[in-house]
Design a binder for these strands. Structure first.
Lengths: 146, 146
DNA sequence: CGGGAACCTAGAACGATTCCAATTCCTGGC
DNA sequence: GCCAGGAATTGGAATCGTTCTAGGTTCCCG
């Protein structure tokens, strides 16, 4: 039996599934998804647009925005914002933050130490419902990985 | 002797100081600062612009942006971004996050429980330098405070 | 196979922010 | 106090990521 997880993250090199997570797949959505799964460097919509043209020369920027929005809305990818910079997109759905290395502009996922529940270290009134957490760090990694 | 703190946060109802935190005060900067200190509801640049016109009818939006940028650059106020919404400004310099109440659009400061150091719960390589942390929550507060 | 809905596309529109050139304001030295 | 030079302010134009719109295409289901 196919697990929910394999439904959510089908092999991006395989055949296009009829849908992912309730979102009907189209050629454009599938290529957008594939690209994000393959190139996890947090590309912007424009990055996606430029890169995807190798496979879909006629795709429009508006479609890339539409596809990204659809994928985000269905919880297939995440949209990440740094200040007022262009939004970036990330296929890592696990709870994590983002570290912006100022020495080279690269972005890295940051996870919490095991056993840490972020909502437990915050001073919030009892009964608060958290639907989304966004954590952004800025600084320098020790020796910039090559 | 005047402490650094009183220099950093002069009484917004008092006389305009020559400078704050190394930033030379001007009428426009002072009124911008006063407004943020008085109305801590995280206004946008446009909010500041509209509200400040009661005191400075001839101020321009560009000046508001300039003043806010100067105040931010000198560490006098903080700039806070939610997704791609207009930037908001906040005079609370203590380490804190922001909770965006989706039921009414209001924004509340969120502090960490005492003794918690956020950088200690994160899984970062040894030697990482963190220059800035931004934490944004979204959800609903239990009973919306009146 | 036909009709309606969902999608895609290109280009116009939008909105927050920044840039620009011209004017005004300060400040320090006389 | 007065003047020159630099800093700030101003209004409007420009920028740029994103969204909207209108028309054409594709897909699905009967």
């Amino acid at each position: 039996m196919v697990s929910d997880d394999s439904n959510l993250h089908p092999e991006p090199s395989g055949k296009m599934p009829a849908e992912i997570n309730g979102l009907r797949m189209t050629r454009q959505r599938w290529e957008t998804y594939r690209l994000l799964m393959t190139q996890k460097d947090h590309p912007t919509a424009n990055d996606v647009f430029r890169r995807i043209q190798k496979r879909l020369p006629n795709i429009s920027l508006a479609t890339v925005y539409n596809c990204l929005e659809a994928l985000v809305k269905h919880g297939i990818v995440r949209q990440v914002n740094f200040d007022r910079e262009p939004s970036r997109f990330c296929p890592n759905l696990a709870e994590h933050g983002h570290f912006h290395d100022e020495s080279n502009g690269s972005i890295h996922d940051v996870t919490f130490k095991p056993g840490i529940d972020l909502s437990e270290v915050l001073d919030l009134p009892e009964g608060t419902v958290i639907t989304d957490i966004e954590l952004t760090l800025r600084g320098k990694l020790p020796t910039t990985k090559i």
